[in-house]
Amino acid sequence: MDETQSDAPAPAPQPAPEPVGRREFLSNALRLGGGVLVFLAGAPALGEGPVAEGYDWTQHRYAYLIDTEKCIGCGSCVRACKAENGVPDGFFRTWVERYVVSPEASHVDSPKGGLDGFPPIQTPFTPTKSFFVPKMCNHCKETPCVQVCPVGASYRTQDGLVLVDAERCIGCGYCVQACPYGSRFLSPTTHTAEKCTWCYHRVTKGLKPACVEVCPTGTRQFGDMRREDDPVRLAIAHGRVSVLQPHLLTEPQCFYLGLDKEVR
C-alpha cells in the first residue's frame, strides 16, 4: 500500500476508518459481557472468620489409623458413633466387617454393622484366618464424592475432612454412588447425604472422634499430620500402612495397619 501511495501523483486522502460492522460489534460486546460475568462470578466472597473459637483450621491436617490386628469386633465404635451423631437406625457412618477366609473361599459379614457385636459363626469351609476390619469414610484427598456433587454441598476442608452441607444438599445421591467405600447414605429423616465427619464438633474442640475415644484396644487412632510428634503421624511415616482400594487413586486419609488382601 505504501509503495502504491508513493507512486501516486497526488497523496490520496486518508481513507475513513472502517466502520465497525454489526457482526463484529456484537461479538466483541458479547466477549466483553462474558468477561464481566466471569469476573463477577469469580469474585471472592467476604466474611471469612475462624471455624470455631480458638481453632485455626490451617494448623491441622487430620489422619486416621486403623490397626486391624488389634480389633476384637466389639462394636463399641459403632454404638458410640450412633450415640454421638444420632445416626438413623439401619444406617452407619462407621461399621465393622468380619472376614473369615480360607485359601479356597471367604465369607464377609457385618450384622447390623457390628452395632451389637458379632455372634459366633459357622462357615461351610474351614477358615485359616479371620479378622475384623473397621470401616468408615476415608476422607480422601482426591475424593470422587466432592467431584460429582452438582451443587457444591460436598467439600473438603483445609484441615482434611470431607463434609456435607445439608443446607445445600439436594439429595440427588450422586455422591452415594460415587463413593467406592460405601461410606455415604441418604438420611431417611433429612433426605440429604450423610457421612462420617470425624466428629468435627469434637475435633475442633481438641477431643478425639467418639469411635477413637471408646475403642478399648487402640485399634482406632486419630492424629494430626501437622504435629511433629504425633503418634499417628509417626506410625504412618515409619509403619507399613496401606489404604483401601489404592488403585482408585483417591488418596484416602484413613490408613490401615495389617490389612489383608481380601479386604476391599
Binding site: A45, G47, A80, E84, R202
Partner: peptide, 25 residues
Amino acid sequence: KSYGAYGPYRFDNVAEQAAIRPPQH
C-alpha cells in the same frame, strides 16, 4: 454469603458443623 471463600462450597457450613451439637462422649 460465604460461598467461594475457600472453594466451591459455603464456608459458613464449616463453622456450623463444628457447632452442630455438644460432644456427647
